[in-house]
Amino acid sequence: MSTAREDCFTMEGKLALPYQYFAGLTGSRFLISLRDQKKIKGLKCNKCNKIFVPPRSTCEICFEEISGNWVDLKNSGTVTGFTIIRYEEPHQPVKPPYILALIKLDGADTPLTHIVKGVPLSKMKVGMKVKAMFAKKSTSSIMDIDHFRPVEGKPKFEMGYTYDELEVGMSASFSKTISESDVYLFAGISGDFNPMHLNEEFAKMTPFGTRIAHGALPQSLIAPVLGMKLPGLGTVALEIMARFKAPTYFGDTITATGEVVEKLEKKRWVRMALTWTNQKDELVAEGSALVIPPMPLPQQAE
């Protein structure tokens, strides 16, 4: 059998000396599935009927070859054990404190070790239902799952990320198509009945040649990002700045995106870069925001 180089992953070691590790065909298939399908796969031993994850090509107990017996697992599971890592060392993937948990994925028999975020340290417990959150950027490693988060709907309010949970590079966005009625409603809300927004004949004479939406209308789409996604519920916005780059026409689909760019350690505030783009990937506006992320939830009686 010949093996193509591209079928096999190489992992770079982090040591002073470089090492490269080969995941093997079985491990590579698992990693490719994570990367391309965002699917976690298990391997079933037909002798003991156990479904294993992480992948391995033999059942070490039965000594049976299992490398072909792929099974789709759910991207969610239950925490069967955990620890909160508070000591800081260079080999750690994120800055402590962080939660490392044993997570038994739905459909698997053996738990997988991974990071859990989005739950206050004091509220972490065995039995919690969590789901995989995939990394924005693939590293072709187990870190393609960035972390696990509690499955929504369990707590009364799904609070946003706290200062400690936020990391530079995390981002979130919200998209919406701007319709004619949105513009009319916004005119009513703001009192801005400028005919360039409402009167097509007038608008034909402007440089835009047709009606455009109020500048503040697409800009307001960043509010659901900051307030409900990143950092999320409990966020206080201190400052939002924006510079308009291109008009928004009726029917345009605007995506507002916020990305954490700086953590202000002293105040425990977070600075975010904002962008608004349309369906043609044109930059509609850009700016920045300064926010106070949600505080960790107070201890509550169960």
Partner: peptide, 12 residues
């Protein structure tokens, strides 16, 4: 070169 197997697989 044995890119197709990892260490325990090669031993196996």
């Amino acid at each position: 070169h044995r890119e197709d197997v990892n260490q325990p697989e090669m031993i196996h």
